[in-house]
Simulated assay, not measured.
Amino acid sequence: MQTADIPALPRGVRLHYDAVRETWVLLAPERAVTLDGIGHAILSAVDGSRSFGDITAHLGQKFNAPAERIAEDSSGFLDALRARRFLDVRA
C-alpha cells in the first residue's frame, strides 16, 4: 500500500458490532472476519476519502506511536483484506 492510495470498503462490505460475541466484525456477502482492537482501529479510519498516509498519521497521533510502524503494520493488514476482496484501493 502506497502513501497516496485511498482505501475504501466496497459495496456490500461494512463494519458491524456483534453484540452476541461482543466484538467487531467485517461483514461481506456470505463472509465475515472477526477483528481485534487494532484491526477495528484501522478500519474505523478507512472512509474512502482519506489516503493511506493520512490514515497512518491519524492513527499515530491517536495512539502516540511512530507513523512508520503503523504504516508497516497497517499496510500488511489492508493488503491482506484487499487480496480477499474486503477492500478496494484507488491510486
Rank of each mutant, 00 (worst) to 15 (best):
R90C: 01
L59F: 12
R90L: 14
D88M: 04
S51K: 05
D79I: 02
V20E: 14
A8K: 10
D47S: 08
A67T: 14
A8W: 04
A65F: 05
F86V: 06
E30K: 08
E22W: 00
S44K: 03
H40M: 07
R85L: 12
K62G: 02
A41S: 15
D18F: 05
G39E: 09
K62T: 15
P10R: 11
R69F: 12
I6N: 00
P10M: 09
P7N: 09
L35G: 08
P29G: 02
I42M: 10
G76E: 11
S49V: 14
A83E: 13
H16K: 07
H58W: 07
R82A: 14
A71H: 13
T56E: 02
A80I: 05
A4N: 15
A65C: 12
D88N: 03
R21P: 00
S74E: 06
R11M: 09
G60L: 09
D73S: 14
V13T: 10
G39N: 05
R21K: 14
I6R: 13
L15T: 03
E22N: 08
E22K: 15
R90S: 15
S75T: 12
R21W: 02
V89E: 11
L27Q: 14
T3S: 13
T23H: 07
F77T: 04
D73N: 13
S44E: 03
S51F: 05
H58E: 14
D54G: 04
L27N: 03
I6Q: 06
S44Y: 05
Y17L: 07
A57M: 03
D47C: 08
Q2C: 01
V46Q: 01
E68K: 12
G48M: 03
I38Q: 12
E72V: 00
E68S: 13
D73L: 15
E30V: 01
D36G: 13
Y17A: 00
S74Q: 05
P10N: 10
Q2G: 14
L15P: 09
D79G: 12
A19E: 10
A67Q: 12
H40Y: 11
L26K: 01
A71G: 12
W24A: 07
D88A: 06
T3G: 03
V33L: 10
A45N: 08
R82M: 07
K62Y: 03
L78S: 06
L59E: 04
A71R: 11
R84Q: 15
T56F: 01
I38A: 15
R21D: 13
L15I: 05
G37H: 07
L87G: 02
R31D: 09
S49I: 11
R11S: 15
G48V: 00
